[in-house]
Structure formats: structure tokens, C-alpha cells
Amino acid sequence: MSGFRSAVITFPGSNCDRDMADALEKVSGNQPFRVWHGDAELPERLDFIALPGGFSYGDYLRCGAIASRSPIMRAIVEAAGRGVPVLGVCNGFQVLTESGLLPGALLRNSGIRFVCREVPLAVANSQSLFTSGYEAGQVVTMPVAHHDGNYFADDATLDRIEGEGRVAFHYADDVNGSVRNIAGILNEAGNVLGMMPHPERAIEPEQGGSDGRVLFESAVKGLVDA
């Protein structure tokens, strides 16, 4: 395939940006652009934007709060509005909720402890750009590593996103107290996915599993076929 144009955004304190870039390059065959948070503009004609995990700005104020107000986020909100696919993983998910691109918020884990282990996830929506390579109801394994992954939204919002098929993944078991065991959600248009588990840490057997690779393959295939 030729010219899959993706960008990985790095904030001060991001620590999964290299893994994310590596996953995108291995799956698409094209090296992603690396974009700094202070940049005001994204590279042109992007096919895909990834917000990586980490602890942007040391989780000051609230996880993702400061990063979501950084200069590059204005360009990302604008690109998301035009339909450019945006994936936010872990801290990237927190940045997406803080920016208003996704509903709800991520609170401190209900058990207070940092959770770092592989967890089973049930695929709730297998029709989206990011999840078309999975079967609905399929249980996959991906690592989580977070202190603030406890997804919260009010009941009206939860009913709406569940009714619209916007839950991409559920935890198969309670991991962090997330309401309705929600692990990842889509925006209304389906081009923005936020999730706490790390697909980029599960792209080849050497990492302990490759269930996350399917997510990147789905996106790359969906965009090339489109």
C-alpha cells in the first residue's frame, strides 16, 4: 500500500508514543509523523491521528486536562470534525474526554490502586472503522496500565451511547470500577475511539499477544478500501 499518513502526538510526559508509532509503522508500512504538542498545525492530508498513553503534564489538575488545552488539540478537534480518524489510548482517552471529543470522564480506579496487567475485553461493536476485524462478542486480551481508568458518565449519556452502539469494548470483568464495564467508546460519527487498554502493546506474539494488531489492521484496511 502507498502512503498511509498517520501522526502520533507527543505531550510532555507521554510514554507510549514510540510504541504507538511502532505499531502504526509495522501495520501500515509507513512511518508516522511525530508531532509535538506545541505545534499549531498537523501535517497535511492525514489518514489517522493517535494520542498515546502516558502521564501528560504529570497528570496535573486532572489527567489529560492540560494536554487537552494544548495548541495542537485545536487542530485535532478540527480534523476530527472533518472525519479524520482519531485513536486515543489510556492518557489519550483521558485527553479526548477532557477535550470534549468524547463524552464522560475517567476517574480514579475504584480500588485506588494502579492496575497493570492483561485483561480480557469483549468486543461490543465490530462495525466501526477501528474494530471491523473483530467479531461481535469476541473476547480479546490487551494490557491495561492506569490509575485513572474508571469511566464515568451520567445515566442519560450512558443510555444514549449504548443505544447508538458507541461502546467499542467492555471489560469482561470489573477492572477499575468503570460504569457498565465500559473500556472504550466511539464518538457519534464513529471516527474517534478512546480506550484505556493498550492495543499498541499487543501487536506481536513477543509482546505476549497480538490481539491489538487487529485494531490497527482494521483502521488501515478501512482507510485504504475507502
Binding site: A65, R69, G104, A105, F152
Partner: peptide, 9 residues
């Protein structure tokens, strides 16, 4: 509203 508090929570 824009930064100091997250109105969702």
C-alpha cells in the same frame, strides 16, 4: 468552566 473544573464530574 474551560479548565479549572471538569463539568462532567
Amino acid at each position: 468552566r474551560k479548565l479549572l473544573a471538569n463539568m462532567v464530574i
